[in-house]
Design a protein around this nucleic acid. Structure first.
Lengths: 226, 226
DNA sequence: ACGAATTTGATTGTTTTTGTTTATTTTTGA
DNA sequence: TCAAAAATAAACAAAAACAATCAAATTCGT
């Protein structure tokens, strides 16, 4: 049947059943038990499930939803946020745009402005092609999954610039107004941008509110609802 | 049946089935297994599917930021040059890849290597998505037309690294073996890469030979014809 | 039609995956 | 607690898929 196909089959079965036992899989997929166990072991290392005695269970999917998944969620809301954020930008500005699906939506509204954008996000660069915007790409290690640059080099790069405004995202905003990130590398970048910008705008949709994340990296002052 | 037609057939089959195994294709399309595998390999380098053991799966991922990998003049010659250049790269290497249509062709041959690529070229980044290669993006001002980063920041970025090998292009190579560029910004980048690499490979197709350009930036030592 | 270049197929050997056997660990029930 | 049963792991062998090389067939331009 082939390895990849079995993997998908296992995951789709698990999607409905919350738990699966190996012997069931042996029968359904027509391969030996050791093969099933090997599959489960691999899927576990990929973080796609959790092995147990006799089978496997779903893995709680909160932490670190991958970027591609994120990009489709709450899309219309995010687009509105991007439009609203863009209203704060004017000719002559130098702005940071952090990576993230929400900040990305700013781009389509600023293509005709005479501004400079400093960003670590490849989707942002892509979205600003064929525009009047001057783009400065932050250098450093590329995170393939997030499609963005991060790391020590990137932080240093940011430190050498100054911007009028920074547009950043957040993985969570709690009731006290703390901003949370789910990864240190991401938080680092955001903090560097904040440190060297006159004004900072946080772009986050409603699903981020009232939650906490893994790492607190900043605090909100004013709130504008869309 | 012809290559192009088979390609389309494979893709349309894959469109419905989420997964295809090679033996199935062998039967359906009436060609040998090795041919099918070659087709799949080509389709994979074009990012149209993902190969697996026994077949291929859809590459459903979000339409990943792609900067045009479009073919240019002397494409087949350039492809061969890229292949030949890639033979000089091995696991563990740290390499520079300059922007340019010839150097770009190196990428499809190094996706499975365990190396680090430092580049200022967005198409290179794009071509190395879904590969094992660790990418370091050179930061600085983006040249929209060339789809590459250049400028003072970029040169500084390069200076902070050291590479085993550098793969650069050239706009012209005269009979005395001088390398010529048509723009200073490009020459700057090339020179910076040359300065901090142990070994430098110039990738240029036949149309560049026996000509001079605007700015002389380096000199050839050895020549290897393809 | 001829030669060059491209595409395809056959052969070879290598790698990856799968299954079998054997031994170890974990669970369960008396 | 102990032993039987179930599940797991490890080591090795078989099978399937793969890659590399070279030869045959096809296509292409002149």
């Amino acid at each position: 049947m082939g390895f990849e196909r079995r993997k998908k089959e296992i995951l789709s079965l698990l999607a409905k059943k919350e738990f699966i036992n190996a012997s069931e899989l042996v029968e359904k997929l027509g391969v030996s038990d050791i093969t099933i166990r090997r599959d489960l072991a691999q899927l576990e290392t990929q973080g796609l499930l959790k092995r147990t005695h006799g089978g496997a269970t779903k893995v709680d999917e909160n932490p670190m939803v991958s970027f591609d998944l994120k990009s489709s969620q709450n899309d219309t809301e995010k687009r509105k946020i991007g439009e609203a954020a863009a209203k704060h930008i004017q000719d002559g500005d130098v702005i940071f745009i952090d990576c993230g699906s929400t900040t990305l939506h700013i781009c389509s509204h600023i293509k005709k402005l005479n501004i400079k954008v400093i960003t670590n996000s490849l989707p942002v660069v892509s979205a600003l092609q064929n525009s009047h915007v001057k783009v400065n790409l932050i250098g450093g290690e590329l995170d393939h999954k997030r499609q963005a640059v991060h790391g020590k080099m990137a932080v240093n790069h940011i430190k050498q610039y100054h911007a009028d405004k920074a547009f950043i995202g957040a993985d969570a905003i709690d009731q006290e107004g703390n901003l949370w990130a789910n990864s240190e590398t991401e938080a680092e970048i955001s903090q560097a941008m904040i440190a060297t910008s006159d004004k900072v705008y946080v772009c986050a949709d409603s699903s981020k509110r009232g939650k906490k994340g893994y790492l607190r990296f900043a605090e909100v002052i004013d709130v504008e609802h869309i």
